[in-house]
Nucleic acid binder design. Structure first.
Lengths: 222, 222
DNA sequence: ATATTTACTTAACAGTGTTAAATTAACAGC
DNA sequence: GCTGTTAATTTAACACTGTTAAGTAAATAT
């Protein structure tokens, strides 16, 4: 009922109101089960109002993804301060998996659903920024491991290594998210699967003498 | 226009007509983009007819998945005749990935979308059958590798190993399917990623002396 | 010839994302 | 104080979805 020329700050207010309501609903029930009308009702606006802040449902989803990509990168930032590069790589995997498994509906949205290609101008995220870009974080850490000479001598392509490590952790998480309910397979403990994947990564990529994170610790700073 | 008490075989005819039409549309455009009315139009029936053979869209999808799980297992069956267990494990990974990447919309449906839990009585597939159950194929091969003593001595749980190997290959494929279009990441060649994952699997799980498939071949049957 | 069964269709329902056309309220200029 | 303009928001509607109730028509059984 109250229209008024609003300041930019006031405009943003409804925008974040929508985003927060939508996120909460999307998290708990998944994007497809949640209706634009339902999001609107949650914040006592009409569904049409949403369309004054977002072109369509997909853009709303996109905006939420953007803030969550940032959240992911933020949740991993402290890991980058660990002293040993191999330890950082390992911890990044664990941190990423913790995010995925504790926010499965978010994770599904971010990494298991195809979206139209991003217009980087439209996204608020800064690429190649250690605070905002989780892929850049991984790549940096992989580069550190490489520069310190821990990888097997035939491994040179930092992007290739980073993407394969990512794929390994992502595989464990995404399989868990979509298939854990399935009774066809006799699923083992998710923690054990994640741990074995981490072993596969270190044993599979590092030189023989640096395979164990524990050994590394003793060797390098004890 | 022509109703007639049909024989069981004739009843099946429309059923497979529906499945084939639906599969073709689902493959090319994904299940969400395809409408029940559209499937019906494709075979010159009304949408309602589909509901005489399938309870709802989800059951139709399920029926298609079932035949495709069978197709996957069939496409992998010859691999089981390779002489060396490690070679079999490697080839199973490659074959699985070939299926995933050449039928991405199918793969998405089968392994990247959550479905209500299967009623095993309702499914036509036989579990723990080498011809019909791809997970059983993988598990068998992993067991062979284990029994032949190729795995590192601390690896015992065949299900755990199989599921982690699966997760690795699945991670590469699913990331490729959903994210390959994304320009945020500088994607490397999918073949290289797959190859490095295979290396991670062998180097990560096998005893040092059996790491290379090539070496195995020379050593064991040349 | 009538009734029944079977195969199928038309018409409709309740819901979806989305948009065109109001409505309402604040402001600016006279 | 009235006007016109603009911005914020809503109501009503559109085109479409999966799904179902109520038919219709042809073959068989009695």
């Amino acid at each position: 009922m109250p229209p008024k020329p609003k300041t930019e700050i006031e405009r943003q207010h409804l925008r974040t109101l929508i985003i927060d309501a939508a996120r909460e609903l999307f998290i708990s029930r998944g994007v497809e089960a949640v209706t634009m009308r339902e999001i609107a009702k949650r914040i006592d606006y009409s569904a049409t109002s949403i369309y004054h802040h977002f072109e369509d449902k997909e853009s709303l989803i996109r905006a939420i993804c953007d803030t969550d990509f940032l959240a992911l990168a933020s949740s991993l930032i402290t890991i980058l301060q660990l002293p040993h590069p191999v330890e950082r790589m390992h911890a990044l995997g664990s941190g990423y998996a913790a995010f995925a498994l504790s926010h499965p509906n978010h994770y599904r949205l971010m990494f298991m659903t195809e979206h139209p290609p991003i217009d980087p101008a439209l996204s608020s995220l800064k690429q190649n920024n250690a605070e905002q870009d989780a892929y850049f974080q991984l790549k940096s850490v992989v580069k550190d491991v490489h520069d310190a000479g821990y990888f097997r001598p035939d491994l040179h392509d930092v992007d290739l290594i980073a993407q394969t490590v990512w794929a390994g952790i992502h595989g464990v998480c995404s399989l868990q998210i979509t298939m854990a309910q399935d009774t066809w397979v006799n699923w083992t403990d998710i923690a054990a699967r994640l741990d074995l994947m981490q072993q596969m990564i270190t044993h599979g990529l590092l030189k023989d003498e640096f395979k164990s994170v524990k050994k590394l610790k003793q060797k390098d700073w004890q």
